[in-house]
Amino acid sequence: MSLIFTIFALVFVTQLISWIGQSVLLEITYALYLRVFHSTTDARLRKLKTELLTTKSELLQTSAQDQFAKWAKLRRSVDKGLADLEKLNSEISSTKTAFSVKFNSVIWILTTGLQFFVGWWYRKSAVFYLPQGWFGPLGWWLAFPFAPTGSVSVGVWQMACKRVIKIGERVVKDLVGKHASTVP
């Protein structure tokens, strides 16, 4: 793939992640990760919650004065279930924290880090050349910092791509907003 399309794809993926939201992507991928790699823990958590809700509803229907032995047994069961649930939730919370750190690192590497690397690697390369005299004395700015004069540098091309994508985002949001407001 040519440099011009590679940079556009990197900027587009970065903006797409920004539109969706990194926290939303984290929640979706973590739920998938939990179901795939920690399915027993996830199943145990769902089972424990179901049992706890059932026992708690039975406890609420039992009179503490009339059926004290049954009520006390249910109360101990609910307390034990809550303790187990808290322990399981702390395990899942620590797993989520570790996953979050790894996920955010991967997202940073795939977006910002990769853009920095491409910008550094191709810092002296021209993304494309402009016809002579199109921008007059401002032509040097398009080649800033290290690209040959009369060309567009990687950094400038990244900024231009980001700007065009943001304008496209606004246009799509306006069109969707207008369409949504006209539909009854």
Rank of each mutant, 00 (worst) to 15 (best):
T29E: 01
Y30E: 00
Y30V: 02
Y33P: 03
Y33F: 12
Y33W: 02
Y33S: 05
L34D: 00
L34C: 01
R35M: 02
R35W: 10
R35T: 00
V36Q: 05
F37S: 07
H38I: 03
H38S: 12
S39A: 07
T40V: 13
R44T: 15
R44K: 15
L45M: 15
R46K: 15
R46F: 10
R46Y: 13
K47H: 15
K49Y: 13
E51T: 02
E51D: 14
E51A: 10
L53P: 09
L53Q: 15
T54H: 12
T55P: 02
E58P: 08
L59T: 03
L60T: 04
L60I: 02
Q61A: 12
T62K: 05
T62I: 03
T62S: 06
T62D: 00
T62L: 01
A64N: 05
A64V: 05
Q65S: 08
Q67A: 08
Q67G: 01
F68T: 10
F68A: 14
F68P: 06
F68Y: 06
A69M: 10
W71Q: 07
A72W: 11
K73W: 11
R75V: 05
R75T: 11
R76G: 12
V78Q: 04
V78M: 07
D79C: 06
D79L: 14
D79W: 12
G81K: 11
G81L: 09
G81T: 10
L82F: 13
L82S: 11
A83M: 04
A83I: 11
D84H: 14
D84I: 10
E86Y: 06
E86G: 09
E86A: 12
L88V: 00
L88H: 00
S90F: 03
E91D: 08
I92F: 00
S93G: 11
S93H: 03
T97P: 04
T97E: 10
T97R: 05
A98Q: 05
A98N: 09
F99R: 00
F99G: 00
F99S: 01
F99C: 02
S100Q: 11
V101E: 07
K102T: 14
